[in-house]
Design a protein around this nucleic acid. Structure first.
Length: 237
DNA sequence: AATGGCCCCAACCGCCGTTTC
DNA sequence: AGAAACGGCGGTTGGGGCCAT
């Protein structure tokens, strides 16, 4: 890339004004031609950086907040199946990004591994280790709840709730997806520009969420891997 | 109150495959 | 056909926040 051009590019955390400008231009021009979009918008960012910011943070279809148990289970199982194919795994979890899943995995796989090592150690000493696993799960639930509260979300649905389990990976609301002030602002920007379109997207989300399916994904997925793949793919169509 | 260590996650980097011209 | 631009992906980094000391 041109050295002079690169020299003037901004890096590091995005400012609110930059986010707002980016959202406006994406709404006008669409999610493509990122280099051109970066230039036209006047943002002193690379196209790649703009794309990443949108894909990983600004896109209103993204979920916020901690992973549900169902999501965690899916991540662990798919990782066992596919390895570090984060984007592939992310496609099975609408609203979650590869980056998010990658970060989640790095954090929690280590914890889980540690817990399992303890279990092995205690089993070796003649104990069951179930108590430790239980303890681990408890701390994870506590973590999840406090994290949600820290971020100021409107509602937190218990990870044990039957509603959430039944809705699986269907829709944002079924996850107890909450509206952080920042997320609300992004939605406002978009609706300011094209209220019709955002409305349409919302209703589309609703229909594609297929809550009528009422399927407990977590319990049957491993017996019905193929069906699940088809089901989750259909969420994206 | 200061500080050092740890965790989390947004952002960046480099590579590679695909698309466009 | 080939070069350049674009987009996607996985790995890595850096900074902010939290917590224990």
């Amino acid at each position: 890339m041109d050295f002079k051009k690169e020299e003037t590019l901004r890096r590091g955390p995005w400012l609110e004004e930059e986010d707002e400008r980016l959202v406006k231009f994406i709404t006008l021009l669409g999610e493509r031609r990122w280099d051109s979009l970066a230039i036209v918008s006047g943002l002193k960012r690379s196209g790649k950086s703009c794309r990443l910011r949108w894909m990983n943070y600004l896109n209103p279809s993204l979920k916020r907040g901690p992973m549900s148990q169902e999501e965690e289970r899916i991540i662990f199982q798919l990782h066992a199946l596919w390895g570090n194919k984060w984007s592939k795994i992310a496609r099975r979890l609408p609203g979650r990004t590869d980056n998010e899943i990658k970060n989640f995995w790095r954090t929690h796989s280590r914890k889980k591994e540690e817990a399992q090592n303890y279990v092995k150690l205690f089993e070796f000493r003649g104990k069951t280790g179930e108590e430790l696993l239980h303890k681990y799960k408890e701390t994870e639930i506590t973590r999840t709840r406090t994290t949600s509260q820290e971020h100021g979300f409107d509602e937190v649905v218990s990870m044990e709730s039957a509603k959430e389990t039944n809705c699986g990976i269907c829709g944002r609301q079924s996850y107890g997806v909450m509206n952080s002030p920042y997320e609300n602002r992004i939605s406002d920007w978009i609706s300011e520009i094209s209220p019709d379109q955002s409305e349409a997207n919302l209703s589309e989300d609703h229909s594609s969420s297929s809550s009528e399916n009422n399927i407990n994904i977590g319990t049957w997925w491993f017996q019905e891997t193929r069906d699940f793949e088809e089901f989750s793919c259909s969420l994206w169509s």
